[in-house]
Design a protein around this nucleic acid. Structure first.
Length: 569
RNA sequence: CGGGGCGUAGCUCAGUUUGGUAGAGCACCUGGCUUGGGACCAGGGGGUCGUAGGUUCGAAUCCUGUCGCUCCGACCA
């Protein structure tokens, strides 16, 4: 490919609409252009990278036993009504009607489609396991599209679905996918972590998010500094922290006028914040009141709370009236004196506190010398707090640090949620009818590209990992109007092509500076410069984008040297 | 949907407070000169000032509606 034949409109200045680095760079480097909010055109450079990412994914999916298919993007409402999600999915689903008034949606995901496909064909355990995948556009009418390709309304996704005869098989499929994902992100040259994740409403199964580490990432993850434990902030498990044992003092009320926050109480009573107990009141979607208690310096993890509540779908902050009805007092709450039957959940660490301070369930009054094991021994106890930096790893006891990343892929087991709803059943070895055990596994392809840019750039532009660079090498004749230079550059270019290197010849008649700036901005891993020195001294120059390292080689050696350097990028 | 910010040339922005008839840099076209880090000189093209309405002799500027973009929150690949 020659630059004069490449549509890659680079921008000298950063467009005002882009806030995050990857979005800015992809616009500036001429990779993408916006068509409307959350909708982007992939220009030739971006599309080359997308195709490379897809190819890596395909190879690993096939290797793991997946088979590629292509299912319709336009999906009939019926199958969604059957699974019950037509009503649940809400405004996030794009819905359309055909000329007869029949309803369809633009697929936000394909569980319904793939499950109905499989149920009609698979009858026997002998036909399982089965793994089907596709790479295609998905549509979600996001509340707020943002960060360019990071969260679009149309985005490219690889989605694989596994079908197994039992849980053991499902877990085996899961493991294969986990391993395949690990190879995919490794091959792409990205710094990533498989992160234990909550799989929310589905419950029960496993889930990992494959998170590309980047400071601008949306997800906050807890990583152990000693072992390889990593979990999303809402998932991270925590061990009990035992306070030093103390003699139990008698419970006592103290007036704490206006002290309705933990900071105010601790300040007023001159107590360390670790000696206080904090309350958070929630209500479920069914209006049940739930009181959660954590140590004063901790935060309640509402996902953990929600997971403890059978049947609840979401939590919101409780109304003051509901709290008062249960005998509580907003801002001054404790489990002591709450009406019988009220849902109270106490963090495990709270149970190990001695002579602590908590609300007295009346305005402007707190208790001191609260001893949970004595004062509310019957409360439900669980791990309900949010992880924070400095906590101890639940696996090895090492120190946890918090990092940020971009969730580029996710794997999780679904169990029989969809196979039951859509009656995808088979006969097992004993002739008994059973629902299939499913798993689903997604990779955001465009998001992975954005994450790669987010993770690999400097003040001059993008620095592509070789495996997903739009071109591996750019050959730059310093002065393309000089026939000798151009001829030598073409010779190097042709040799690299022959060596099956993905190479671009920047044959534009612009000044060298322009071409160098573009090369840095677009971020080809390797640049080969052919200038006067090549003509006069037979010396061409190879520059590694990431390190800035410059090597020289003779014209004859240049291609071989480039191939050697690429091997290390 | 709630809360901020912004819509003026392809891009980045000035002009809006105090109404007087459209600007700069970059990009683009022509010619010249130049060719190792976004050159230079000369000439040129390009804007219903997001949009609709109102106030006014006169609106980019003031008022009202509306659309779009963007950031923060709930959602997610």
């Amino acid at each position: 490919m020659r630059t004069t034949n490449l549509y890659a409109p680079t921008l000298r200045e950063t467009p005002a609409e882009a806030e995050v680095r990857s979005h800015q760079l992809m616009l500036r480097a001429g990779l993408i252009r916006k068509a409307a909010g959350g909708l982007y055109t992939y220009l030739p450079l971006a599309w080359r990278t997308i195709k490379k990412i897809e190819q890596i994914i395909r190879e690993e999916m096939d290797e793991a036993g997946g088979q590629e298919v292509s299912m319709p993007i336009l999906q009939p409402a019926e199958i969604w009504q059957e699974s019950g999600r037509w009503a649940v999915y809400g405004d996030e689903m794009f819905r359309v009607r055909d000329r007869h008034g029949r309803q369809f949606c633009l697929g936000p995901t394909h569980e319904e489609m793939v499950t109905t496909l499989v149920r009609d064909e698979v009858r026997s355990y002998k036909q399982l396991p089965l793994m089907l995948y596709q790479i295609q556009n998905k549509y979600r009418d996001e509340i707020r599209p943002r960060f360019g390709l990071m969260r679009g309304r149309e985005f490219i996704m690889k989605d694989l679905y596994s079908f197994d005869k039992d849980e053991e098989g499902m877990n085996e499929s899961y493991r294969k996918m986990y391993d395949a994902y690990t190879r995919i992100y490794t091959r792409m040259g990205l710094d990533f972590r498989p992160v234990e994740a909550d799989n929310g409403a589905i419950g029960g199964g496993h889930s990992h998010e494959f998170t590309v580490l980047a400071d601008a990432g949306e997800s906050s993850i807890a990583c152990c500094t000693s072992c390889d434990y990593a979990a999303s902030d809402e998932k991270a498990e925590l061990n009990v922290i035992k306070a030093a044992e103390e003699e139990l003092l008698p419970l006592e009320k103290k007036a704490t006028p206006g002290a309705n926050t933990i900071e105010l109480v601790a300040g007023y009573l001159k107590l360390p914040i670790e000696k206080t107990i904090k309350a958070v009141a929630f209500q479920t979607d069914a209006d049940e009141l739930v009181l959660a208690f954590v140590r004063g310096d901790h935060e309640v993890n509402d996902v953990k709370v929600l997971n403890l509540l059978e049947g609840a779908i979401e939590l919101r902050m409780a109304d003051e009236e509901a709290i008062a009805e249960a005998g509580g007092c907003a801002g001054f709450m404790s489990p002591i004196g709450i009406k019988e039957g009220t849902r109270v959940i106490v963090d495990q660490t709270v149970m190990e506190m001695y002579n602590a301070c908590a609300g007295a369930n009346e305005k402007d009054v707190h208790y001191v010398n609260v001893n949970p094991k004595r004062d509310f021994p019957d409360a439900a106890v669980a791990d309900i707090r949010m992880v924070r930096a400095g906590d101890l790893c639940p696996r090895c006891g090492g120190i946890i640090k918090m990092t940020r990343g971009i969730e580029a892929g996710q794997v999780f087991t679904l169990g029989t949620k969809y196979s039951e709803a859509l009656r995808a059943v088979f006969l097992d070895e004993n002739g008994r009818e059973k629902p299939m055990q499913m798993g689903c596994y997604g990779i955001g392809v465009g998001r992975t590209m954005a994450a790669a840019v987010e993770q690999n750039n400097d003040e001059h532009g993008i620095i592509w990992p070789r495996a997903i660079a739009p071109f591996e090498v750019v050959v730059v004749p310093v002065n393309a109007k000089n026939p000798e230079q151009l001829e030598l550059a073409e010779a190097v270019y042709n040799e690299l092509k022959k060596a099956r290197v993905d190479v671009l010849l920047d044959d534009r008649k612009d000044r060298a500076g322009v071409k160098f700036k573009d090369a840095d901005l677009i971020g080809y891993p390797l640049r080969i410069t052919v200038g006067p020195k090549a003509v006069d001294e037979n010396a061409v120059e190879l520059k590694v984008r990431r390190t800035g390292e410059i090597l020289t080689a003779s014209r004859e050696e240049a291609a071989a040297k480039a191939v050697e350097l690429l091997g290390k990028l």
